[in-house]
């Protein structure tokens, strides 16, 4: 294992410290909780607060999406492990300007429990909390059990839509509804080529045999639903697109947002190779791509592989995506 670490037990705290130093123009550490990162613009008077959180190892997620017109505060967990209820609670308090807080997070057992407990704690302070639980990962459960699906990179588009809606001064109900709508219009799939290693374990979490790939892999290295022979990039892109489009019902003239994220160790130029094929195919379908994102937006330590996320846009989502957003992980200038 060749990694830049001091003590594995300290790596999350050190990474968070470095992150807030590097992005001090946009974010700050919570004064009483070293596992909560808060936007410089939060809490903002007259606006609903947005919170997310999750395990570390997905950088720039989750803390990279704290900023202007994005998430107001983030709870940071251990590597691949949910933040504590206390951290979610501190994040909720930091984000609350008196208009309630919407917690937009991914569907994992730990996060579900800790957010539930945090919301209960916040309710005692008189803070109204609503939640939207991301479940964009198509391969993690069949459509009829969509509530079991995991949340992956599609969360970024959910935060973007929710953040832009909150910026308009919309009510808590309205922000929740927009974030839910964005999520319902979003599907993701992951393909893994090589595993990742938690430094404290010192060895890979699982194995992917040479010459094979795991389709539907989770972004913590949850084994995929299918292991197949490694294909050429265009064929992989086709498979990924087919999986997400199977539930999208796209027709000519539709507009989508596309996100291709690396899982950490895949060279960025390979992500562009995937995107080249995806864009070509969508173009052939006469589907317009708005604001494509290609890069390491939601990683899984040094896993090799990529995720594809497609969000089908309606007029509201299109207008929201056109607005300004500024956070360490994403900058959009209208």
């Amino acid at each position: 294992m060749q990694r830049f670490i001091n003590n594995p037990d300290d790596l999350v705290d050190e990474a968070v410290r470095g992150f807030v130093k590097a992005h001090r123009d946009l974010v700050a550490l919570h004064p009483d909780n070293a596992r909560v990162v808060v936007s410089r613009t939060a809490p903002e008077c007259g606006r609903v607060g947005l919170v997310t959180g999750g395990g570390s190892g997905h950088e720039p997620a989750f803390m990279g999406y704290v900023g202007r017109h994005m998430v107001d505060a983030v709870a940071v967990g251990e590597l691949f492990s949910s933040p504590t209820a206390k951290s979610f609670y501190d994040a909720i308090r930091a984000a609350d300007a008196g208009n309630g807080v919407c917690v937009l997070y991914g569907n994992y057992a730990g996060d579900n429990m800790n957010v539930k407990m945090a919301a209960r704690m916040a309710a005692k302070d008189g803070i109204e909390v609503r939640t939207v639980v991301a479940n964009d990962d198509v391969c993690s459960a069949p459509l009829e059990e969509r509530e079991k699906r995991r949340g992956v990179a599609g969360e970024i588009l959910m935060w973007r839509a929710g953040g832009a809606r909150a910026a308009t001064g919309a009510s808590l109900e309205a922000v929740q509804a927009t974030a839910q709508k964005a999520l319902d219009a979003t599907r993701s799939v992951g393909v893994g080529l090589a595993p990742c290693t938690l430094p404290a374990n010192g060895r890979p979490n699982f194995e992917i045999a040479p010459g094979t790939m795991e389709v539907g892999i989770g972004h913590h290295g949850e084994p995929g639903m299918e292991v197949v022979d490694l294909k050429a990039a265009d064929a992989v892109a086709d498979d990924m697109l087919d999986i997400v489009l199977a539930e999208q019902n796209l027709v000519a003239g539709d507009t989508v947002s596309v996100l291709v994220s690396g899982l950490g160790a895949t060279p960025v130029n390979e992500l562009y190779i995937l995107y080249d094929r995806i864009a070509t195919r969508l173009d052939a379908m006469n589907v317009e791509i708005m604001q494509p994102l290609v890069g390491n937006y939601f990683t899984s330590l040094e896993m090799m592989g990529a995720t594809l996320t497609v969000m089908k846009l309606d007029d509201e989502l299109r207008a929201l995506l056109a607005t300004e957003a500024s956070c360490p992980g994403l900058k959009v200038t209208p």
């Binding site: 251990e78 492990s81 949910s82 504590t84 209820a85 206390k86 057992a109 800790n114 407990m117």
Partner: peptide
Amino acid sequence: LMTEIGGSMGPL
């Protein structure tokens, strides 16, 4: 466990 650990095991 509840204030420092998180995960699933923290709350459980």
